[in-house]
């Protein structure tokens, strides 16, 4: 992972929230996380294969997801739509990154989790976290790429 790769993700995160909610997020200082996962209420994971291998995920509090859905005009707010939405958000962010990484940046369908259960990544793998705030909420994108 390089500076340029990271900037791509930062730009895409900003673009996603600006475009779908008309509110720009504010990126914070990155954090390298080891061992214990700090997952928020809802997390969407995308497995990467091909030239790069690993995972990209976004973890968000429930209140933030509900606000995002509200901005998009979505009236549903049950657990099922929240899981679906967090999966779709990480899928869009990661898929958009193919413009930079190329077609060999292969993307799986999303895996989602509520709370700290069922995270598909081993917590032994170091993660590069990009914390950000959106409106009054705090969330983050985690990148765990081997290449």
């Amino acid at each position: 992972m390089t500076d340029k790769d990271l900037k791509v993700f930062i730009d895409i995160i900003c673009h996603y929230f600006e475009k779908t909610t008309r509110h720009a997020p504010e990126l914070k200082e990155p954090v390298i996380e080891l061992n214990q996962f700090r997952l928020l209420d809802y997390t969407g994971f995308i497995k990467i294969s091909g030239n790069n291998q690993g995972w990209v995920y976004i973890s968000m509090p429930k209140g933030m997801l509900l606000d995002v859905l509200n901005c998009m005009g979505e009236s549903l707010s049950d657990r099922s739509i929240l899981l679906d939405s967090v999966g779709e958000i990480v899928s869009i962010i990661t898929s958009n990154a193919r413009e930079h990484f190329g077609a060999q940046f292969q993307i799986s369908v999303p895996v989602t989790s509520a709370g700290k259960e069922n995270a598909p990544i081993s917590h032994e793998m170091p993660r590069f976290l990009l914390p950000f705030s959106w409106r009054e909420h705090q969330a983050y994108v985690g990148i765990a790429l081997l290449a």
């Binding site: 992972m1 500076d3 990271l6 954090v31 390298i32 996380e33 080891l34 061992n35 032994e124 170091p126």
Partner: peptide
């Protein structure tokens, strides 16, 4: 951020049991 990425890449080279043995959640704190 460049430094943070370099630190991340260095840690990827460390065998995972050794990272686990450090028992820390983040190198930033």
């Amino acid at each position: 951020t460049t430094g943070q990425i370099a630190a991340y890449r260095v840690l990827l080279k460390v065998p995972r049991p050794l990272l686990q043995a450090m028992k820390i959640e983040s190198i930033n704190f």
